[in-house]
Structure formats: structure tokens, C-alpha cells
Amino acid sequence: SDIKVHVGDITVELHNVSEEFARLVEEALRLGLNEEQAKEWAHKALH
């Protein structure tokens, strides 16, 4: 599904992702990663 993740003043739109993936992206953003890094990190975490 499509999910918007908000962290501080950052909003990341995720398309066709699981809630778990979105949660991992949100966690990575909170750790200070940028959007691209957060998506990559979440992807690796799920595989």
C-alpha cells in the first residue's frame, strides 16, 4: 500500500510497501539517515 512517513519536517511517500517496511524507514529517518539511505536500510533489514 501507499504510506506517508513523517519524521520531524521530513515527509517520505512510499508506494506499494508493507507496513513493516514503512516502519523501518521511519526508524532509519529517526536515526538520522536521509530518505535514500533509509529506504536502502529498510530493504536490507527485510532480506
Rank of each mutant, 00 (worst) to 15 (best):
N16T: 05
G8V: 05
R23H: 12
I3K: 03
F21I: 04
E27W: 10
Q37N: 10
E35V: 15
K44V: 13
Q37W: 03
A42G: 02
S18F: 04
H47R: 04
L29H: 01
H47Y: 10
A22N: 06
K39W: 08
T11I: 15
V25R: 02
R23N: 14
E40V: 11
L33R: 04
E13D: 11
N16C: 05
A45Q: 14
A38S: 09
R30K: 14
A28P: 00
D9W: 08
V12Q: 03
A45V: 14
F21W: 05
A28K: 01
H47P: 10
E40D: 15
Q37H: 09
N34H: 05
E27R: 09
L24N: 04
H15D: 05
I3G: 06
A45E: 14
L46K: 01
L46V: 13
L46F: 11
V12I: 14
A42W: 01
L33D: 01
E35N: 06
H47A: 15
R30M: 13
E36A: 01
E19W: 15
D2F: 11
L31D: 08
I10Q: 08
G8K: 02
Q37I: 04
W41S: 08
E36Y: 12
E36C: 03
D9H: 11
H15P: 07
A42Q: 00
H6S: 15
K39P: 01
Q37T: 07
R30F: 14
A38D: 00
H6A: 12
V5R: 00
E13V: 15
G8D: 08
W41C: 04
Q37R: 09
E13I: 15
N16Q: 10
L14M: 08
E35C: 04
F21G: 00
D9K: 03
H15L: 11
N16L: 07
L14Y: 03
Q37G: 06
E27G: 06
K39A: 05
D2Q: 07
F21N: 01
A28Y: 09
N16A: 08
F21C: 01
V12H: 05
R23D: 08
Q37Y: 07
I3A: 02
V17C: 04
L33K: 09
S18V: 05
N16D: 11
W41P: 00
E35D: 07
I10P: 04
H47C: 07
L31I: 09
L24V: 02
S18H: 06
A38I: 01
L31F: 15
I3S: 04
V12L: 10
Q37E: 15
T11R: 03
L46N: 09
K39L: 14
T11P: 04
S18Q: 06
H47V: 13
V17L: 04
E35M: 10
G8E: 08
R30L: 14
F21A: 01
K39N: 04
V25I: 10
A45P: 01
W41G: 02
L14T: 04
H6P: 09
L24I: 04
L14F: 05
L33I: 05
V5E: 07
V5L: 11
D9G: 14
L31M: 13
K44P: 00
A22D: 03
V25Y: 05
D9N: 14
E19R: 12
A22Q: 06
V7T: 05
E27A: 13
K4E: 09
V17K: 06
L33A: 08
E19C: 06
L24D: 01
A45H: 15
L33M: 15
K44D: 12
N16I: 05
S1E: 14
G8T: 05
W41Y: 15
I3F: 14
T11L: 11
V7H: 10
E40P: 00
E27N: 03
H15A: 07
I10E: 06
E40M: 12
H47I: 13
A22K: 06
W41R: 06
V12N: 04
F21P: 00
G8P: 03
L24E: 02
D9A: 14
I3N: 08
E26L: 11
G8M: 06
L46A: 10
A45G: 10
A45I: 13
L14A: 04
E19M: 15
L24Y: 13
G8A: 06
E35Q: 09
R30W: 14
H43G: 10
I3L: 08
E36R: 12
E20P: 08
A45C: 07
E27D: 11
K39C: 08
S1L: 12
E35H: 06
N16E: 07
A22G: 09
I3P: 02
D2A: 10
K4V: 15
H47T: 15
F21M: 05
E13S: 12
L33S: 04
K44N: 14
V17I: 07
H43R: 11
V12Y: 02
E27C: 07
T11Y: 08
G32N: 05
A38K: 00
L14C: 03
G8Q: 06
E27T: 14
E36M: 14
D2K: 02
N16W: 06
I3C: 03
E35L: 14
F21V: 03
T11C: 05
V12G: 04
V17H: 06
I3Y: 15
